[in-house]
Design a protein around this nucleic acid. Structure first.
Length: 262
DNA sequence: ATGGTCGCAAAGCGA
């Protein structure tokens, strides 16, 4: 079984690339973030024609998360318990979708960006992560053998090695101690980054800004992760980052992150 | 090459 996560940055503008990723990697499950559409706008036909089922939540042109699976779609949960809201009026955003696929509980997650340190969105990000951690800990407490993947765009570079230039990021979001502590909180709850051991080369990234020729200059960030519960981590036989997918016209600014399970 | 990012409910915002 092979699962993957990808911040697609608009599924409508990139559905051909989505189908290409599914086929090229023979994926059983693909989690998407930033679909940027409502449920009724999701281009479901090619997905279904290829033998996949689809779960999606999207309320407007922002955010939006999906799970595409050919090993079943069960127990769909939109958002987690006590997921923080944002805005005025405060609303629940389409940033978390839990689905059971072939016995694996996958969560497609799009962690709030934070915008700027000290911004209301930054506090929202930290709160969101803390609440996620509380819920994720409960899932494992309820069933220590649960196979759970918390996968998606975490908008955090957990270590200095995960950004192309630490100086560039001084004072910016994604690298601050509170964000890194929040990420570590999920790890401490029992979830392991199963991809890093297979992708440990220096300057291995999952995201490159569209501007400033960041991709050809290899100036990226590692901010997309698949964190797995112990029982699921024990099944991992390999992982990779599809850097090729970032190339060419019409690429997302993120690359797919893939995990092989026995 | 005096500019060099995308995407959207677009002329402004979010990433």
């Amino acid at each position: 079984m092979r699962i993957a996560t990808w911040n697609v940055n608009s599924v409508r503008s990139r559905i051909d690339r989505v189908m290409g990723v599914l086929e090229r990697h023979d994926l059983d499950v693909l989690m998407l973030q930033e679909t940027k559409c409502r449920d009724d706008q999701f281009p479901a036909m090619p997905v279904q024609a290829a033998g996949y089922e689809l779960a999606h939540v999207g309320y407007n042109q922002w955010n939006g998360v999906a799970v595409i699976s050919r090993v079943g779609i069960e127990d769909v949960q939109v958002g987690f318990e006590d997921m923080p809201t944002y805005g005025d009026p405060a609303v629940s955003e389409a940033r978390a979708l839990g689905v059971t696929c072939g016995g694996v509980r996958v969560w497609s997650l799009y962690v709030p960006n934070g915008r700027e340190v000290g911004h209301e969105h930054y506090d929202y990000k930290l709160d969101w992560l803390e609440r996620l951690g509380v819920d994720a800990a409960k899932w494992l407490a309820d069933d220590p053998q649960a196979q759970i993947a918390l996968a998606g765009d975490w908008n955090i570079a957990p270590t200095d090695a995960d950004v192309w230039d630490t100086e560039f990021f001084e004072g910016r979001t994604h690298v601050t101690p509170p964000e890194r502590a929040a990420f570590q909180g999920i790890v401490d709850a029992g979830y392991t980054d199963v991809v890093r051991p297979y992708t440990s080369e220096p300057r291995t990234f999952t995201y490159w800004d569209y501007t400033q020729l960041r991709f050809p200059k290899k100036q990226g960030m590692r901010i997309d992760f698949a964190l797995c519960s112990p029982a699921l981590a024990a099944r991992v036989t390999g992982a990779s980052i599809d850097r090729e997918e970032r190339k060419g016209k019409g690429a997302s600014d993120h690359a797919p992150v893939l995990v092989d399970l026995d």
